[in-house]
Write a protein that binds this DNA or RNA. Structure first.
Length: 439
DNA sequence: GCAATTCTAAACAGCG
DNA sequence: CCGCTGTTTAGAATTG
């Protein structure tokens, strides 16, 4: 987080919020003090960087944070304090900046959000009804939720754009359907990377509470990540059901194969390693034509991914590909999501192993697609010359894939819903039938 | 110490 | 021309 500290002295003098940030960045750096801490603490303590440092070393914050976790889960109004997560959970069509859940961020108006820009963008986009936002809307969402940026140096917008451009999690979608502002594009979250983003979110300070809190079963003190994930899932379900045309044929295939093999299978508690392997090979659970088609498209898309060349090493993209193969399934079952979270959260400190096992043969997996850290890998990217055109091609195919994914996911989700709904009906009908036969 | 990650700054081009 | 958007590069700080 040091960049602010790393600002040149003159720049720091220029920027009004800089001195605040310098102190607060210590808190941010910790990555363990959620904004709830800000809310529960006197602001003076926050601004005092020295005391923050002390707390860093003497671990008092840990004790505090355990207390704060209560507040963290439940706000004063009985609402989860982590509004972005809560929001996604609560509303299909989120309202911006007007509801009660905007307060938590505003409580920490002077503190830098404990989210990376990637996650901020992700949350902003996920909050949008269409899961697509122009840059301006992303700005405003962030501003709305994290007023810190209102006083922060304007460079953060540059950082947002920088992230959008460089981060392969975000796709640029040309405004084709008569959007109002002719300027700029819409930005969406690449569905391939949603699981990764969610995992990254899980790794954030807020969701680190899940490490302390009880499993999701405990209703009110439920960990946030499952909340978030399930809420995103719910939203995706609604979204896909609304937006996608459900291919009946595909649906039947899904009903016969994927659901049986995938969802049913994933409902069983699995050993960690098995679960992880299943995660990796989830594409296998979708061994129906459309799934195969998707996989093919997937590999096609990723194979021409210029970002892969530019931003990330091939090995990391292999991880992305692998993760992406499970993206549909990752969002297709709450059970699976829930199954995944606690395990991944205790697999490793960063939970990165959540998407793979040590036995991976697809390459060296890297779980975090969020960074713009590809700079280093540029050195080994000998195909970086593909540049823009390749990226556009990739974007196009990604859009196509996105559509296909939506369709498939929609079909699957829809059928899963039908299945669960009809399941009881069918079973009751069966029992009734059996009773009649017995008579 | 090093690599990876993240953030910030800046330059530049394209577009409205 | 100006402002916004998007891309790219460079550098600094942090973290594991």
């Amino acid at each position: 987080m040091g960049p602010v500290i790393g600002m040149t002295p003159d720049k720091r003098a220029e920027t009004p919020g800089a001195e605040k940030v310098a102190g607060l960045s210590q808190i941010y750096k910790m990555g363990s003090l959620p904004e709830a801490v800000d809310a529960a603490r006197p602001k003076a303590t926050l601004v005092d960087s020295e005391s923050a440092d002390d707390e860093l070393t003497n671990l008092n914050w840990l004790h505090e944070s355990t207390n704060l976790l209560t507040n963290f889960s439940l706000g004063s109004e009985g609402l989860p304090i982590v509004s972005p997560l809560y929001d996604i959970e609560g509303d299909d069509v989120p309202s911006f900046g007007s509801s009660c859940y905007q307060n938590p961020e505003k409580k920490s108006a002077t503190s830098k959000p404990p989210y990376s820009f990637s996650l901020l963008i992700y949350m902003a986009i996920e909050h949008s009804p269409n899961k697509c936002l122009p840059v301006k809307e992303i700005y405003s969402w962030i501003l709305n939720r994290f007023p810190y940026f209102a006083t922060a140096p304007t460079g953060w917008k540059n950082s947002v754009r920088h992230n959008l451009s460089l981060n392969k999690c975000f796709q640029k979608v040309e405004k084709s359907h008569g959007k109002v502002n002719g300027k700029g594009s819409l930005w969406c979250v690449d569905p391939e990377y949603k699981p990764n983003l969610m995992q990254a979110l899980k790794k954030q300070p807020f969701s680190s509470a899940s490490k302390f809190s009880t499993p999701p079963a405990s209703s009110q003190s439920v960990s946030l990540s499952p909340h978030y994930l399930s809420s995103v899932l719910k939203q995706n379900q609604v979204q896909t059901l609304k937006e996608s045309d459900i291919d009946a044929a595909t649906a039947m295939m899904l009903l016969k194969t994927s659901i049986e093999q995938g969802i049913l299978e994933c409902e069983k508690p699995l050993p960690l390693k098995t679960a992880l392997q299943k995660k990796r090979s989830y594409g296998n659970a979708f061994n129906h034509p459309s799934a195969i088609r998707l996989q093919e498209s997937d590999s096609l898309a990723t194979s021409i991914d210029p970002k892969e060349d530019h931003n990330y090493s091939a090995s990391s993209m292999a991880a992305q590909r692998c993760a992406s193969r499970s993206s549909v399934s990752s969002l297709s079952s709450v059970d699976e999501v829930y199954e995944f979270i606690p395990k991944s959260s205790h697999v490793g400190s960063d939970g990165s192993e959540g998407f793979h096992s040590e036995e991976d043969t697809d390459g060296d997996y890297e779980d975090d697609p969020l960074g713009d850290s590809g700079y280093a890998s540029q050195a080994c990217a000998d195909t970086s010359g593909k540049g823009q055109s390749g990226k556009k091609m990739r974007k196009q195919s990604c859009q196509e894939i996105d559509e296909e994914l939506k369709e498939a996911a929609g079909s699957l989700l829809h059928l899963a819903g039908i299945r669960t709904c009809l399941g009881s009906l069918i079973s009751t009908a069966k029992t009734q039938n059996q009773k009649q036969r017995k008579k």
